[in-house]
Nucleic acid binder design. Structure first.
Length: 554
RNA sequence: GUCCCCGUAGCUCAGAGGAUAGAGCGCGGGACUUCUAAUCCCGGCGUCGCAGGUUCGAAUCCUGCCGGGGACACCA
């Protein structure tokens, strides 16, 4: 069942087809464009049909538009039709017809804007930070944005699984183990190396991990000089770090359905199967002692190594095996959110999956771009290599979860963003999060007063009382909400919700200052109560999607 | 050098091929005896980076150029 707002669009489109028929023009419904106006005052829905018919019908666009309007059938939901500008036809949806949406929302708050299950399964993989250190700010962006996308797709009727891919095998875990060994040695009183080995981070948190390890393992001193112990030490530390990441994400309001271990994939020999399949498809060749994949056959810039000269696999092999595994689990859509450092990985991943016979459209790869933190207008240093990176935990210590999540979701994911720490902490007009939350708090406050005074209001709801421009604007905002959700889901654009929320909050605040509720006559009071109840529902549902709370008091 | 993203108001950014390109912030005025002033109202002279092209119509699509950011390992 389409939302009322969408229903209006479809009926207008059908009406246009009827008008076309009376002008002896055949046109398929899907080819008739009915779009939102670009500007206020141009109605609720607009068609450009007249421009597109200049070759099939004699006359100028305004003339054709006028004839179409004339033959447009009477529809109860169309209040007004206007031929405007150089040939547009603007349609106003009848406010009374539209006001049904208020009752609909109030009768089913949780279901409002939610499309019934459409039977499609989505696997969304995001964050997937290496378990070799704490989460950093850009992981927070991925977490907030990815979680919102998951909520958005759920609202749009998809069945969504959130997954975190844990790189708990391979070289970086061995390096972590080596760092552990160095730190354990430090515990025995040895000096730290003057130059750390290539790829081994001198990070402080490893010292804490080493202490914890020593405290729980009696034989630890024997491992210090044992190179073969690095993988095990690394795996131990990686699991601790992974568990910390899970906790931090939970604090950030993000939970995963599955933490998928790369090690389990390797243990099951899935990467071997990928290489064998590529071999059997004759897509590998030898060069300089390594096995290369012919990725240029699949649109990549250059071929690349899959089996190193030492016999080990490069990163792409287990990752490809992981994606094969995902598809085998039967998902209709597989979506990856990759970090900014994976930019170059994208074309390789697409190439190898194409090589393995998967259609390009089924795998969507989105890039989460980097985050620059600003304090006092100046960038805060956050280079992971320099060791001065800002962690997600540090960010959460400074900024509350609600504004942090809002800020991350507000911007499209594929462009670098500045995160203004000062602004995020401001609890004033400059901060859009509180602006929207404040609208919710005001509604709660009115509803509490109302329910205390009129627990049993005998007055029936009469939408005819809602005639003020701001009331009608709010009815439209409520009615549009399901369409906003569906469109944002299709576009993978949760940021659209932030814009919607700001708009409905703006209309509400203006309404609030201009009109009263409790002092009005019973019938008007009742109508406005129904209106703001529905506004609160639409607002809360949209806030739910971006993972930001709606406090009852502020 | 190749590939990806981005150039729109002083700043941060919206913009579904359409009408006179919009918001917020900042700045200047004004509004609470009232259901929350974390609010509202008024104030906008922009080469939509540049040049071509497609189109009845381009900030939007295509090509080239200029500027900014990022990615281009037998690391993950």
């Amino acid at each position: 069942m389409d939302s009322l707002w969408e229903q209006a669009r479809l009926e207008i489109r059908a009406g246009l087809q009827v008008a076309l028929t009376s002008l002896s023009v055949d046109m398929a419904l899907e080819r008739i464009e009915v779009t939102p106006p670009t500007e206020e005052g141009h109605g609720d829905w607009v068609t450009n049909l007249a421009f597109r018919l200049t070759k099939r019908l004699a006359g100028s666009p305004p003339n054709i538009a006028a004839r179409l309007a004339e033959h447009f059938p009477q529809l109860p939901l169309v209040q007004r039709i206007e031929v405007a500008g150089p040939g547009f036809i603007n349609f106003w949806v009848d406010s009374q017809w539209l006001a049904q949406v208020l009752v609909e929302a109030v009768n089913n708050p949780q279901g409002f804007g939610r499309r019934p299950p459409i039977g499609e399964r989505v696997l969304l993989e995001f964050v997937s930070a290496n378990p070799t250190g704490p989460l950093v700010v850009v992981n927070g962006r991925a977490a907030a944005w990815g979680d919102s996308l998951a909520r958005l797709l759920t609202m749009a009727g998809y069945s969504v699984d959130r997954e975190f891919y844990v790189n708990d095998a391979g070289m970086q875990v061995v390096k972590l183990g080596q760092a552990m060994a160095i730190r354990l040695d430090e515990l025995r009183g040895s000096p730290l190396p003057e130059v750390w080995p290539e790829g081994v981070y001198p990070a402080e948190y490893v010292r804490d991990l080493a202490q914890a390890y020593a405290a729980s393992h009696s034989q630890w001193e024997a491992l210090v000089e044992d190179v073969t112990a690095w993988p095990e030490l690394g795996a131990w530390a990686a699991e601790i770090l992974r568990a910390q990441q899970e906790k931090e994400l939970e604090r950030f309001g993000v939970r995963f359905d599955r933490w998928f271990s790369e090690k389990s994939l390797r243990d099951a020999k899935r990467p071997d199967a990928v290489v064998q399949q590529l071999e059997s498809l004759d897509l590998l060749y030898d060069q300089e002692g390594a096995r290369w994949f012919r990725s240029t056959q699949f649109g990549d810039q250059k071929d690349y190594v899959v089996v190193k000269s030492d016999g080990g696999y490069t990163y792409i092999v287990p990752d490809a095996a992981y994606h094969v595994e995902k598809f085998q689990r039967g998902y209709d859509h597989v979506i990856d959110l990759l970090g900014p450092d994976h930019h170059g990985h994208l074309s390789r991943m697409r190439a190898i999956m194409a090589g393995l016979g998967y259609r390009a459209e089924t795998l969507e790869i989105l890039i989460i771009q980097m985050v620059r933190l600003l304090r006092g207008g100046q960038p805060v240093k956050m280079s992971k290599r320099g060791g001065t990176f800002v962690t997600l935990a540090e960010l959460m210590d400074e900024v509350e979860v609600d504004p942090a999540r809002w800020f991350f979701v507000e911007r499209s994911s594929d462009t670098p963003m500045d995160f203004d720490l000062d602004l995020a902490q401001l609890k004033t007009q400059e901060n859009p999060v509180y602006y929207v939350q404040y609208a919710g708090a005001r509604i709660h406050s009115i509803l509490q007063t109302y329910e205390a005074r009129f627990a049993e209001d005998p007055e029936p709801f009469d939408s005819l009382k809602l005639v003020e421009p701001l009331e009608q604007a709010l009815i439209r905002d409520v009615a549009k909400m399901p369409s906003v959700i569906l469109r944002a889901a299709e576009q993978r654009a949760p940021q659209a919700l932030c814009r919607y929320l700001t708009e409905i909050a703006t209309h509400f605040h203006a309404f609030y200052r201009q009109h009263r509720i409790m002092e009005e006559a019973p019938s008007l009071r009742r109508a406005r109560i129904e209106l703001i109840r529905a506004v609160l529902i639409a607002l809360s549902q949209a806030m739910e999607v971006i993972g930001v709370s709606v406090p009852e008091r502020m």
